[in-house]
Each structure stands twice: as C-alpha cells, then as structure tokens.
C-alpha cells in the first residue's frame, strides 16, 4: 500500500493498493489500511488505478474499509476505477453506498 505522502491528521488519506485485490493479497492490504487509518482523517480516498482485478475477498475488503470509515464518520470514496472493476461494483450496487469515480 502506498500513500501520496505520509498521512497527517485532518488531511485526506489516499490509499493506493499497488496490487490486485484478490485472496492472496487482501490480508496484507488490510494491515496497511488499518495502520493508515489509525489517525483521524478528513476523508479517505481509495485509489484503485493500479488494480486490475478484484475477487470476492477484495470486495469484502473494500466494504470493510468503507464500514470502518462510516463508523468513524469519515467520508469515503473510490477513484481511478478501471471499467472492468466498475462493472463489478455496479453489479453489487456499491455506488449506492459511496461515490465511485472511473479512472
């Protein structure tokens, strides 16, 4: 997981997974996300511009991240979504829950 710069309290946190969100990578990504969210953020943006593929557990991870943000009252959105991923998100009606922007 990379962020655009070291996270500071009150700023928007940009999370950019460098790998596909599939069974073999989700646990590591979850740990990185947890760490990044230790401080309070003004907003959280999940940048999926480097992600080509997402499976069931990847979707679960994204929803878990959203749920965590929701509990903390932090606005959450996803950006840089490739068309194929966008279809999956739409199929699951995820745009109903949070903004998703295509990349």
């Amino acid at each position: 997981m990379t962020t655009s710069k070291p996270p500071l309290a009150g700023e928007t946190l940009r999370l950019k997974p460098p790998v596909d969100l599939v069974a073999s990578t989700v646990e590591a990504q979850r740990v990185v996300m947890m760490k990044a969210l230790e401080a309070k953020r003004a907003a959280v943006v999940l940048d999926l511009s480097a992600v080509d593929q997402i499976d069931s557990l990847g979707i679960t991870l994204v929803l878990g991240l959203f749920k965590t943000c929701q509990k903390a009252g932090t606005p959450f959105s996803i950006e840089g979504v490739k068309p194929d991923l966008m279809r999956v998100f739409r199929l699951f009606n995820l745009p109903k829950f949070f903004p998703i922007l295509e990349g």
Binding site: V26, E27, R30, M33, M34, L37, L57, I59, T60, L61, L63, G64, L65, F66, K67, T68, K71, F92, N93, L94, K96, F97
Partner: peptide
C-alpha cells in the same frame, strides 16, 4: 445487493 448492516469493519471483515 449487499446488506451493509452485515458488513464488518476492517478489523474483522476478512
């Protein structure tokens, strides 16, 4: 759809 109420947070989602 996925029922949001059922979704766990990052800690235990997986």
């Amino acid at each position: 759809y996925i029922d949001l109420a059922e979704v766990a947070d990052l800690e235990s989602c997986l």
